[in-house]
């Protein structure tokens, strides 16, 4: 009976470890402009040395012929400098199509691509948006990993991004 309990406890702990991760929700604002194109959006994690620790998602014109949509990836200046320029796009599980105005949530599991395994420490989630004939905006949400409890942090954009939420799960 005691043995069974131990197994059960172990099972619970393992279950908790598997669920660890984070989710990011990005609000793309609806803009009333004469010429609207969906923004390119990148989200990544930087470590305390401001180096890219995880390249989470990039939403761009993946469907264009001959990878022509990659021409504008450099407009995501922050992401391009920290992560994009040294990667060969597209990347499975990272590249995705541009999104319509609204809230979009993406979940990332610790230990699995593209989040991977973060060493304990201080990190910053970066979310950047750049829009053709529009502007560019980058938001930062600092966080500690691993989180003590599940917690949600947010940042609010002024132009190209609405509210960005980071939900941490331990």
């Amino acid at each position: 009976m005691k043995t069974n309990l131990a197994v059960l406890t172990l099972g619970l702990a393992t279950g908790s470890a598997q669920a660890a991760g984070l989710s990011v929700s990005v609000e793309i604002p609806r803009l009333s402009v004469a010429e609207y194109h969906r923004p390119y959006v990148a989200m990544w994690i930087e470590d305390s040395g401001r180096r890219a620790a995880s390249n989470l998602n990039v939403w761009y014109d993946v469907e264009m012929r001959n990878d022509e949509g990659e021409k504008w990836l450099a407009d995501l200046r922050g992401w391009w400098r920290k992560a994009g320029r040294s990667m060969d796009m597209p990347i499975d599980g990272v590249s995705g199509p541009t999104k319509a105005p609204g809230v979009h949530q993406v979940d990332f599991r610790s230990g699995a691509k593209p989040l991977g395994t973060l060493k304990p420490g201080s990190y910053t989630l970066k979310v950047e948006a750049a829009r053709e004939v529009g502007g560019r905006e980058m938001l930062s949400i600092p966080f500690q990993w691993p989180p003590k409890d599940s917690e949600t942090k947010s940042a609010k954009g002024k132009s190209e991004l609405g509210t960005v939420r980071l939900n941490l799960k331990n």
Binding site: N66, D67, E68, E70, K71, W72, L73, A74, R77, W80, R81, G84, R85
Partner: peptide, 10 residues
């Protein structure tokens, strides 16, 4: 015209 570019060719 630009100094930092992306894509397969430019």
């Amino acid at each position: 015209s630009a100094t930092v570019l992306s894509g397969d060719t430019e």
